[in-house]
Design a protein around this nucleic acid. Structure first.
Length: 564
RNA sequence: UGGGAGGUCGUCUAAUGGUAAGACUGCAGACUCUGGAUCUGCGUAUCGGGGUUCGAGUCCCUGCCUCCCAGCCA
């Protein structure tokens, strides 16, 4: 498991109610001071940022208290689960920086034991085979204000139940024709206690057990039992399972087995981010995104491809805290956490994702100078590099204005700025196309300012802009991302209605030559623009960059305020 | 209108009967060869009403609001 660096160690971790519970349990000796958690994903989709919160919580708690955390696949519904998901989950949890050592399990590992326990409950007169259809079960269940009715099959003898359940397992009955139900209380105000289904008949090939079974346990009957088998002490889950806790407790109590403690916390909600596995699956299936790892997806694989770092995500998870209040975290907090990490580690490079030509008229034709540039001002050990400079350059279109607004400090006719690491240049004119669009900017440079240093006369310049030598620039594809959705969709409407048509914008960028051959996943800061990550679609001829997140842009704020 | 769980700055989290704190966001400024980073400052909160107490965000009563639950999903 990762040791949190200075970034996370700087501030003392705030406590949370789960940590408090564990602390109390350790004092009372409830589990002999043992702390054993688990992360129990269902392999029916890819992990997303919401899961990261749970992973950090479960593994983090174990780590903090010198305990263990298992990875366990909750694979009790073969109709939705696939190995592809298992593999992606393994990769994502590892990538996030956690280690379950030799403790990777599947609920399906315990199917035999679960079956035996079901038989035990039948023998104890606490479970019965029910012939009601799904619809009938629903009718018999009652409503919030009316109690349910007992199933007419509720009083079958133990022998008959044993026989029927055995024959369910043997495949003598069609799918959905019978269930094994727990005999609890049809009048309970908690629906989960109204004779809940334990097993259903379901003929589907299971990704691990194949066709060995045609009956599968329900979540409620499986989860606590799996926790129990693994010796879990604190079974941490999300708030919607609060109503299930009485049933969780009922099973382990009546089975007489180790009783882990279920604790519920608030699931992560993020502004302008959709974290429904069902809807994410739909985006993939209907082709609204290129796949589960589309950089616009809030999946861990998408975020990884986009350039998010495990450290940044872990920092975020430690900042959001854990509680039982149903809130929504501002996306800006995630971005801030990411930038904090990226700022420390990303190599700086000059590039333009919206280039415009600049000609330095008084610079000798054909001359090339190698300018020294710092790779990372936050990390001296990152060293320096040489960047070629020549007569014709590219700068960002946004760094030139023919008619500069108030407080705009960058290049404009008659104004002098610094080209980072190179020279002071003064704009002397522009060339326009037939449409009146500026296509080329002309400048003169001051040789006395080489290296970007302040000239002997001490004159200063209000702005420093970045550039790329046209003759040396690499052509690259830059993929600029915005939110996938334009607004936080209401539950009622078709969420695809609010898809953002501009969530992906592809640009041709000019990038300094030092990035040539960078491996996919390499993180850069394009100075003054944003953080970018080399995408796996890159070819030797044409690198592809994903914009991970923009830099904080004070000027954009000023300009926005001016327009308002 | 049955059951369960919650309501503290704009957002999230702390304060465990004793000065309502931190982070993010916002605004203002300093610094800067990134309008980045960094630094400084400012602002805004205990859902309402009663009560207990020297003292209440915290305890009690009461009202209001929000979320979850009627899958053979998890």
């Amino acid at each position: 498991m990762p040791t949190e660096g200075a970034i996370e160690g700087a501030a003392p971790k705030p406590s949370n109610f789960i940590r408090d519970i564990i602390l109390e349990d350790n004092v009372s000796g409830k589990y002999g001071g043992r702390v054993h958690t688990r992360f129990p994903p269902e392999p029916n989709g890819y992990l997303h940022i919401g899961h990261a919160k749970s992973i950090c919580l479960n593994f983090g708690l174990a780590q903090e208290f010198g305990g263990k955390c298992n990875l366990r696949f909750d694979d009790t519904n073969p109709s939705k689960e696939e190995v592809e998901y298992v593999e992606s989950i393994i990769e994502d949890v590892k990538w996030l920086g956690f280690d379950w050592e030799d403790r990777m399990f599947y609920a399906s590992d315990y199917f035999d034991q679960l079956y035996a326990w079901a038989v035990q409950l039948i023998r104890q007169g606490q479970a019965f085979v029910c012939d009601l259809t799904a619809e009938q079960i629903r009718e018999y269940r009652g409503t919030p204000t009316e109690p349910g009715k007992n199933s007419p099959y509720r009083d079958r003898s133990v022998e008959e139940n044993l026989d029927l359940f055995e024959r369910m397992r043997l495949g003598e009955f069609p799918d959905g024709s019978r269930t094994l139900r727990t005999k609890i209380d049809m009048a309970s105000p908690n629906f989960n206690m109204r004779d809940p289904v334990m097993y259903r008949i379901l003929r589907a090939e299971h990704h691990r057990t194949g066709n060995k079974w045609c009956i599968y346990p329900m979540y409620d009957f499986a989860h606590g039992e799996c926790d129990s088998i693994e010796g879990i002490t604190h079974s941490i889950c999300t708030l919607e399972f609060e109503d299930h806790r009485p049933l969780y407790d009922w099973y382990v109590e009546n089975l007489g087995i180790h009783h882990p403690q279920q604790i519920e916390f608030d699931r992560l909600n993020l502004t302008s981010t959709m974290l429904s596995k069902r809807k994410l699956l739909m985006l993939v299936q209907k082709g609204f995104v290129s796949g589960w790892d589309d950089p616009r997806m809030p999946t861990l694989s998408g975020m990884r491809r986009r350039g998010y770092t495990p450290e940044g995500i872990r920092l975020f998870c430690s900042r959001i805290g854990v509680s039982k209040t149903n809130g929504i975290i501002e996306f800006a907090l995630l971005e801030n956490s990411l930038r904090e990490d990226l700022n420390r580690r990303a190599l700086r490079v000059m590039a333009s994702v919206d280039p415009i030509r600049v000609v330095i008229d008084n610079y000798p034709d054909g001359q090339v100078e190698e300018m020294d540039a710092v790779n990372n001002p936050e990390d001296e050990s990152a060293g320096t590099r040489k960047v070629p400079f020549s007569k014709v350059l590219y700068i960002d279109r946004d760094d030139f204005r023919e008619n500069p607004p108030k407080q705009y400090f960058r290049l404009s006719p008659g104004r002098e700025v610094r080209l980072r690491y190179a020279y002071f240049v003064t704009c002397t004119g522009v060339v326009k196309d037939a449409a009146g669009e500026v296509v080329e900017v002309h400048c003169t440079y001051d040789p006395a300012t080489r290296g970007g240093n302040t000239p002997p006369d001490g004159r200063k310049v209000k702005s420093t802009i970045h550039w790329v030598s046209a003759a040396h620039a690499l052509d690259a594809e830059a993929r600029l991302y915005e939110n996938l959705f334009l607004e936080d969709a209401g539950e009622e409407k078709d969420f695809t209605d609010t898809l953002n048509p501009k969530s992906l914008e592809v640009r041709t960028a000019k990038v300094e030559p030092s990035v040539k051959g960078a491996a996919p996943g390499t993180l850069y800061q394009f100075e003054r623009v944003g953080y970018f990550c080399v995408d796996k679609d890159s070819t030797p001829d044409k690198p592809v960059f994903n914009r991970t997140v923009q830099l904080r842009d004070t000027w954009a704020k000023i300009e926005k305020a001016q327009k308002a």
